[in-house]
Amino acid sequence: MIPASFDYIRPVSIDEAAHVLGNAGDEAKVLAGGQSLLPLLRLRLAYPTTLVDVGRLEELRGIRDEGDHLFIGAMTTHDEVMRAGAIREHAPLLALAAATVADPAVRHRGTFGGSLAHGDPAGDLPAVARALDAQFVIRSMEGERSVGAADFFVDYLETALGPGDLLVGVRVPKLGQGWGFHYEKFRRTAQAWAIVAVAAAVRRDNGVIQEARVGLTNMGTTPVRATAVENAVRGAAVDNGGLREAANEADDGTEPPSDLHAKPDYRRHLARVLTFRALTLATPTPPPA
């Protein structure tokens, strides 16, 4: 990697990090796992003057059970997310999605917070955070604030994080009983980014879908919540084509990107097919009578 030159600071506390960021100006960048930032530096698509490496901040690491929600530190790696018992129990959708990120090397370096802060709609965690209504905890010199997922993702590679902001962690509400989960990712090779992916959480009762949450990866400039699907599927019977009908709403209101791997019409089609698959696989099977 041959990046342009930059200053490098490694704060030892969240306070110091917030302070450093607050004073470093617009062109400073937080360095977490580096798995998105370093490629940008390598291609000289980003010219930060200062990198603030938060890699040694143990305070940003780890998962805490805080009653009705989990708190996941920003520096928790994808690998930790996919293995953590608390996540598997209370927010398995995160673990399912994290397990599809790239390859083991990237998952051991790349972080949960970095993935969200980067705001790449092709990333796997943002759509899940949308589906689960995660709350983003942000620190700056001004103090701490919290932003909901719906407001956090602003545009392509743009989030509610401004210069001087540090993402400390994310609160993920526990969904409670009766839910099933699936992350359906469509990609050309095992390590590739999603062409389209669908995060689905489904609560079923008595052969009827009570409630669903559906997030779409790479179907717009931000991760998308497929509300039309969620509305259509509510109350649908599990086995009479209701899921497929609801899934056909998946691309409603989306503006999928066009790139070498897929044109928008194909992405729309995929969103419908994959949403059906995700809903089907997420729907819990009833306990044996």
Binding site: L43, D103, R188, T189, A190, Q191, A192, L260
Partner: peptide, 12 residues
């Protein structure tokens, strides 16, 4: 880049 020029790995 290898994100655009796709090579298979053993997993594929």
């Amino acid at each position: 880049t290898m994100a655009d020029y796709l090579l298979p790995s053993a997993a594929d």
